[in-house]
Nucleic acid binder design. Structure first.
Lengths: 114, 114
DNA sequence: CGAAATACCTTGACAGGCGAGGTATCACGA
DNA sequence: TCGTGATACCTCGCCTGTCAAGGTATTTCG
């Protein structure tokens, strides 16, 4: 089953930060990494991806710099800041809380089992 | 920790359907049930609640009828339809898929442990 | 030479959540 | 009796994140 994007909403920035926790990356690469990690089940739309990068940079969670590629298309690399790392940990906790709450609320829909 | 509403987005209808899987209910009651089940951590905003009921009814997932209260405020009761039950199961599966994907993507942000 | 992949970006529309406002009833205490 | 809080419903308009659609430029490969 593919992933309903309504349900991902609010997690895109956290997902991007998670990628950047490992190493610096550029947009296209980050998205391909996400695609690979999910076995092709999920990929951010480009417009979503780049607007999320923009928001994260405006918020001081990441900084960007142009790569020094002498060949191929230019790449804008992003690096996570200390603020971004802090923000990532907070967002992750928020996700875990929300996840638990939703799981709990949806687990009640099963009356006809047993 | 309270729940970031951005992360609930897209799940409100499913949460409401889960409540109605158990028994018919009216708006205010459904919301209080949610509040109780989450130990006060989460509650739908009224505007969100009622617009969600409206969408669900328009989609044929629920039907409504006025209660026969002779005293107190009038209550609009909602009952889940077969289509609604079907929809609930699908939405729940979608949630589980999204949950697994996000968990996977966020689990990668932990390099510095160990 | 043309197509596909890489790589970036912006605009405008859309949908869901919600603040703020409204209505009406009832219970309770000052 | 008069206000306050709880119950119970509803709507309007704004905000925010997503995304379709469009654009640019380079390189590789047939």
């Amino acid at each position: 089953m593919s992933v309903a994007s309504e349900l991902i909403r609010g997690n895109t920035e956290t997902i991007i930060l998670a990628q950047l926790m490992k190493r610096d990356g550029y947009g296209y690469m980050v998205n391909k990494a996400i695609l690979n990690m999910t076995g092709g089940r999920f990929e951010l739309k480009e417009a979503t991806l780049y607007t999320a990068f923009r928001r994260l940079e405006d918020a001081g969670c990441i900084v960007s710099y142009w790569g020094d590629e002498t060949t191929g298309a230019r790449r804008r690399y992003y690096s996570i800041t200390d603020l971004g790392k802090e923000s990532y940990r907070l967002r992750k906790k928020e996700w875990e809380t929300a996840e638990a709450v939703i799981d709990k609320l949806l687990s009640e829909g099963e009356g006809e089992t047993i």
